[in-house]
């Protein structure tokens, strides 16, 4: 249960083609992350799956059955919204119970399931509070509780962590991952944050301008980006992309090298440069080096004693060099 297939799904608002045509297969129990810059259509794609928007053409199948024209309520999917979308006039208990009430379960059954969900999410002591009395993280848990309580075919998450502060975000990320391990239910998660995508996903779908740029496991995307866009989008700090003569030496229009695949030396190397900003984090040092080919980001060890204005030499690790052709596609 929980297998979702998109076939040539298109979405247009008037003349604007938000999704020009997407084919995608999401396997049962998978944790799939839609990632891309804002406006890339990832949220629209999620809403199409949810049934909150009509598809202009194409079909959406859930567990092999055509669900393209089913209303959201009939698709058996649960969604966690960016704003949490809790019902402010209901207690936490009633919020979580709402989908069960809509499904027409009897009260004893509802109570049992609500208690169960609350236990999983550590919400027992808040059940009689209103959402307005909860912190951001607690509200997020209630929203998740409301989603898991009715055992949906799949969970849809629309940028659920973007309203939380940084520390809480890391925690909730872990909780959602653990939840997935526990429930083994299909999850589709939309985010613009590639760190969330890398850490949580079984499968990442990178989107740009409504098109799928690449689909793969986090490591596949990291190791073998299919094009310049994915190369630049996945990985932090960003991959260095170099065009021009240096790229031509490697038979490519653009070459890419990740900051962690560049050797730094104060004495010798392939490319000479000057250190601009240097960020000493203790575990790592990030150097912004001005070279003839532009600004390059380099990751060095934590105890590298290089500072603003120092001259350095950089040597790329050729085994990890990415080459792209004139269309921006990877040369393999």
């Amino acid at each position: 249960m929980g297998q979702i297939t998109l076939k040539q799904v298109r979405k247009s608002f008037g003349d604007v083609h938000v999704i020009p045509g997407v084919d995608l297969r999401i396997e049962e129990g998978e944790f799939v992350v839609f990632v891309g810059p804002s406006g890339c259509g990832k949220s629209t794609l999620l809403r199409l799956i949810a049934g909150l928007e009509d598809t202009t053409s194409g079909t959406i199948e859930i567990d092999g059955k055509d669900a393209t024209y089913l209303p959201p309520a009939k698709r058996g999917l649960a969604m966690v919204f960016q704003s949490y979308a809790l019902y402010p006039h209901m207690s936490v208990r009633k919020n979580i119970a709402f989908p069960l009430k809509m499904a027409g379960l009897d009260q004893a059954e509802i109570d049992r399931k609500v208690e169960g969900a609350a236990k999983v999410l550590n919400l027992n002591s808040y059940l009689d509070r209103r959402p307005g009395q909860l912190s951001g993280g607690q509200r997020q848990r209630v929203a998740i509780g409301r989603a898991i309580v009715r055992s949906p075919q799949a969970f849809l998450f629309d940028e659920p962590l973007s309203n939380l502060d940084a520390a809480l975000r890391v925690n909730m990320r872990l909780e959602i991952s653990e939840l997935h391990q526990k429930l083994k239910t299909t999850m589709i998660y939309v985010t613009h944050d590639q760190v969330e995508a890398m850490t949580m996903a079984d499968k990442i779908v990178v989107l740009q301008a409504g098109r799928i740029e690449q689909v793969g496991t986090p490591m596949e995307l990291y190791k073998t980006p299919a094009n310049v866009f994915v190369a630049g989008f996945i990985g932090s700090p960003k991959m260095n992309l170099i065009a021009g003569a240096e790229a031509a030496k490697h038979g490519a229009t653009t070459i890419g090298i990740r900051p962690e695949h560049v050797q730094v030396s104060a004495t010798s190397g392939l490319w000479q440069g000057r250190v601009g900003v240097s960020e000493h984090l203790g575990s790592d040092t990030f150097l912004h080096v001005t070279t003839d080919m532009g600004l390059l980001n380099v990751r060095a060890g934590g105890d590298v004693a290089l500072y603003h204005g120092d001259t350095v030499w950089l040597t790329p690790d050729l085994a990890h060099l990415h080459r792209f052709d004139a269309k921006g596609l990877a040369i393999r």
């Binding site: 959201p72 649960a78 969604m79 409301r146």
Partner: peptide, 11 residues
């Protein structure tokens, strides 16, 4: 979004 949530919840 709250009304959409209700729709997703089967209302």
């Amino acid at each position: 979004e709250i009304l959409e949530a209700a729709r997703m919840d089967g209302a």
